[in-house]
Amino acid sequence: MALLVATTLALVACMVMILARALLGPTVYDRVMAVNTFGTTTVMMIAMVGYLMGRPEFLDIAIAYALINFIGTVAVLKFFEVGILGADSSSPSEPSAREKPVE
């Protein structure tokens, strides 16, 4: 059990360091990348806390978080790339960036 506590503390330290990168930036992409990695450690953290407290039901939350993390990252990136979150996004700068070229 002591090892699980140590793991959780190490994960907390890891999350603090990643959060520092998210705050430092300097570009928006650094922040998005840091938040994405932060999400992965959060998923692991939720699962670890579940085992630490003897409640493995936390795993369901971890699964949901893993999926939301990915969708959130892609949504934020899409927003920064084309400035709109809807499906009908004819980008002003690079219209065909997300479609593969069709002959």
Binding site: M1, A2, L3, L4, A6, T7, A10, L11, A13, C14, M15, M17, I18, R21, T37, T41, M44, M48
Partner: peptide, 15 residues
Amino acid sequence: GAITLSGAVFCLIGA
């Protein structure tokens, strides 16, 4: 616990 700790160490290295 030892394996999870080694995983956390790799997370620290990545951070």
